[in-house]
Design a protein around this nucleic acid. Structure first.
Length: 428
RNA sequence: GGAGAGGUGGCCGAGCGGCUGAAGGCAACGGUUUGCUAAACCGUCAUAGUUCUUAUAGGGCUAUCGAGGGUUCGAAUCCCUCCCUCUCCGCCA
């Protein structure tokens, strides 16, 4: 969330940001929060003054009592104090809902935008970052899509997955399962051994506070699976548990930047998106992903974003999978991020790019929500760290592109060289 | 599931109705000492809001001892509810 002080001092900037994000409808929230803030200040001042009075009189009582003066001689002080307490209570009953409203609006307002984010209305306005990266694959025959390949080879089973859970819960069978696991292991090893990340295997169920910490709550509450019995939520991404690893902590300055890589299954309800890209792996309720998360000093976060992006790209380069990078425009970038790159892999069967990674800088937006701080130096006050994350990568769309690119005219799959030591076989 | 113990500052830990925003220790920072390192000694050292001033600093006031509520003139301290952690027993992977 944003700092209320910052909003108060730069309302025009926030307003411009909302327009840029195509969220002009949120404008009343901005006005309302400023109004509430002003009102709160007045109430707090009155309540503080009354508290000061009350405390002074209480001390008076204590002193008189200590001197052994009989209570009958200062009965009237009790009355005054009680009256002051009534007034304080009255102010507090007004203050509480006000503070709650401020908190709720702050939680709902989107993040600032970095100046390098291109202005745009929708996904169509995203900028292609750099050149699309291609690799030669001889596909001069009628290509099958990943569904046909998965079915004919018996490595992906959507029907049985649907039987046991519902649509969007694929089962990987035999060499398909092994390939999936190989991808995960390859990515984790690359990030930990070559890119310097510390591996984390996080909990897959989290509490609501964790969702709020990273910004999935309250905004995306309807996209998250909820286990009512224990009031826990299935993580939509490892970003949630891994970022929350340090919730409420004062980080050792010399430990920054902190870099984590984590595998997790990811669960998404995808409510409201039925009928859109629903085939096979294009949109599923459960998928696997290796996530990179970084905590940095504020001045280092944009350099760290480029690192995360390049670390995600390194996986695709190693696997020789064609991709392009998008710099998301102001109208398409998620509410939590100040800047975001999407990495899209090419699908020869669909003849389009599929999103396989999203690398974002959140600056202090998540850190403020989850109170993750550090002291720039021993004398200075605590500051919020910057948090970032990027998929490195999600396996589902990656698997689509991999199966389709590495298919043979006979309908088999060659295993990319980089994965062979992980699969233990060269062909499916 | 049953029984018990506990949640205090960056960390450990004392406090169990007013003198406690909080002893003591560790860490950190400044200094003295020192050939260097170490040690010793002295000092500084929570966060937020608000206000004042001789205003890149200092002072006053307010709030904060897991969260919320209650008792009281006054609560870290007493009572209630909730959350979390730990220990033991039971059950089970």
């Amino acid at each position: 969330m944003l700092d209320i002080n910052y909003i108060r001092q730069n309302p025009d900037e926030i307003l411009a940001m909302l327009h840029n994000r195509q969220l002009s409808a949120e404008e009343p929230k901005l006005h309302r929060v400023l109004e509430c803030d002003k009102e709160r200040k007045g109430l707090v001042q009155r309540s503080d003054a009354l508290n000061a009075e009350r405390n002074k009189r209480s001390k008076e009582i204590a002193e008189k009592k200590k001197k052994g003066i009989p209570p009958s001689e200062y009965e009237m002080i009790y009355e005054i104090v009680q009256d002051e307490n009534r007034q304080i209570a009255e102010i507090n009953t007004k203050l509480r809902p006000l503070e709650e409203e401020i908190e709720n609006i702050l939680l709902a307002l989107p993040n600032k935008l970095d100046s390098s984010v291109p202005a745009g209305r929708s996904a169509a306005d995203n900028e292609i970052f750099g050149e699309p990266v291609s690799f030669v694959h001889d596909l001069d025959f009628p290509v099958k899509n990943h569904l046909e390949l998965g079915k004919s080879l018996g490595i992906l089973d959507f029907e049985r997955g649907a039987k046991i859970s519902g649509a969007g819960f694929p089962a990987y069978i035999g060499k398909g399962a092994r390939l999936e696991r190989a991808l995960i292991n390859f990515m984790l090893d690359t990030h930990t051994e070559r890119h310097g990340y510390t591996e984390v295997f996080p909990p897959f169920l989290v509490n609501q506070e964790s969702l709020r910490g990273t910004g999935q709550w309250p905004k995306f509450a309807d996209q998250v699976y909820h286990i009512g019995e224990d009031d826990l939520y299935a993580i939509p991404t490892a970003e949630v548990p891994v970022t929350n690893l340090h919730r409420g902590e004062m980080l050792e300055t010399k430990s920054l930047p902190i870099s984590y890589a984590a595998y997790s299954a990811c669960f998404r309800r995808e409510a409201g998106s039925y009928g859109k890209d629903t085939r096979g792996f294009l949109r599923v309720h459960q998928f696997n992903k290796v996530e990179m998360v970084k905590f940095t000093r504020p001045e280092e976060s944009y350099a760290a974003l480029e690192q995360i992006r390049s670390h995600a790209e390194a996986i695709l380069v190693a696997l020789k999978i064609p991709y392009r990078v998008l710099l998301l425009c102001s109208g398409d970038i998620s509410a939590n991020a100040t800047k975001c790159y999407d990495i899209e892999v090419w699908s020869p069967a669909e003849q389009k790019y599929l999103e396989a990674s999203s690398c974002s800088n959140f600056e202090d937006y998540q850190a403020r929500r989850s109170n993750i701080r550090f002291k720039p130096d021993s004398k200075s006050k605590p500051e919020f760290v910057h948090t970032l994350n990027g998929s490195g990568l999600a396996t589902s769309r990656l698997m689509v592109s991999l199966l389709e690119h590495y298919q043979t005219p006979e309908g088999h799959i060659r295993v990319p060289e980089a994965l062979q030591r992980y699969t233990g076989f060269e062909e499916i």
